[in-house]
Amino acid sequence: MSIWQYANPKKFMDTTGPLLPWIGGASLLCIVTGLVWGFFFTPDDYRQGSTVKIIYLHVPSALMAINAWFMMLVASLIWLIRRHHVSALAAKAAAPVGATMTVIALLTGAIWGQPMWGTWWAWDPRLTSFLVLFLFYLGYMALWAAIENDDTAADLTSILCLVGSVFAVLSRYAVNFWNQGLHQGASLSLDKEENVADVFYYPLLVSIAGFVLLFIFLVFLGTHTEIRARRMRALLARERMV
C-alpha cells in the first residue's frame, strides 16, 4: 500500500467523495466559530480599536493565498515526475481558489488599511507582492484555459508553475528592496515576541484551520469536477474510436 494508489482517478474519487461533506462541514464550523469568537468575544485592540478584527479574515486568506501556490508547485512536480493525472488536475483546481484567496487578502487588507494608514492602497512590499502573486495566478489559469490538449496543458502549466515560483520569490525580494513599506510585522510567527496576544491568537488559529479545510474542500471539489470532465471527454473519444 502506498500513497500513490490514491493517484488513480477512480480510487481518488471513491476515497474523497464520502469525505467531502465532512470536510465542508468542518470548515464551515471552524470558520463560523473563529469569526464569531473573534468578532464578539475578544476585546478591541488598544491602538487599532475594533478594526483589528478583520485579522480573522485577512490573515487566513493571505496564508492560503501563498500556500495554495505552494501546493500547486508540489502538485506540478508530482505530475512532471510521476505523471499522475489527479495531481495535475488538483493543481488546476487549486488555482482559482488561490486567486480568490489573494483577492480576499488584498480587499480585506485595503479595508483594514484605510482607517489605519489613511489609504486604501499603498505600494508597500507585502501588498505589492500579493498583487504580483495575483498576476501569476491569472497567467497560470489563462494558460490552462488556452490549451486544448489536456496533457500538453498539464505539462506546460506545470513548468510555468516551477519557473513562476522562482520568479515569484525573486519578485518578493526585489519588491522588498524597492520599497521598505509600512505593513506591520508578521501576525503569527514562532518568535513569541512579535506575536499577537493570546486572546486574539486562539480564535485566529480556529479561523485559519477553517480556511485550510475550506481550501482542501474546494480543491477536492474542483478536482472531482475536472476528473468528471476528463471522464466525459474520454467517453467521447471512445465513441469516436468505435
Binding site: 497567467g139 526585489a174 528592496f177 524597492w178
Partner: peptide, 20 residues
Amino acid sequence: LLLSLLVLPLYVPTLIFGAE
C-alpha cells in the same frame, strides 16, 4: 495577449532592479 499576461509578471524583478 496570453504571452504578455504570462511574461509581464516574470519581468517584475528585472524591471525593478533595472529601473532602480
